[in-house]
């Protein structure tokens, strides 16, 4: 399996990464290299092996339901580009 240049550009768009034509070509090469690696791995017979969702064979640790974080808005907003009335301001988005 290999990706077309168009697919690479779509992925870049979905990831909100601006790529030039030449960067897209380079990326296409990189990604297709990875696909070859995956193809090699897929050639291994994994019949009867349960797929893993994580590289570590452990289960999720849980925390008790308790509030442990206080209000640190002032500190967080001190480094924000723009705020008003406690809100973070961003370029207007209306869907």
């Amino acid at each position: 399996m290999s990706l077309t240049l168009e697919q690479v550009q779509r992925i870049a768009h979905l990831a909100r990464i601006e790529v030039s034509e030449s960067e897209a070509l380079t990326t296409q090469g990189h990604l297709n290299g990875i696909f070859q690696l995956i193809e090699q791995m897929q050639a291994v017979d994994t019949t009867g092996v349960e797929p893993m969702a994580h590289a570590q064979d452990l289960s999720q640790r849980l925390r008790e339901d308790a509030v442990s974080e206080g209000d640190r808005r002032a500190a967080y907003q001190a480094v924000a580009p723009e705020t008003e009335g406690g809100l973070y301001l961003v370029p207007k988005v209306i869907e």
Binding site: Q60, R61, L62, R63, E64, D65, R72, Y76, G86
Partner: peptide, 25 residues
Amino acid sequence: APNTQACAVDLALPGVLPVLNKKAV
């Protein structure tokens, strides 16, 4: 009040990790 209950994890500051709430499960 806005953003007074948004901690580093909720703000997605670099390096934070999620820890699952047992009660939600």
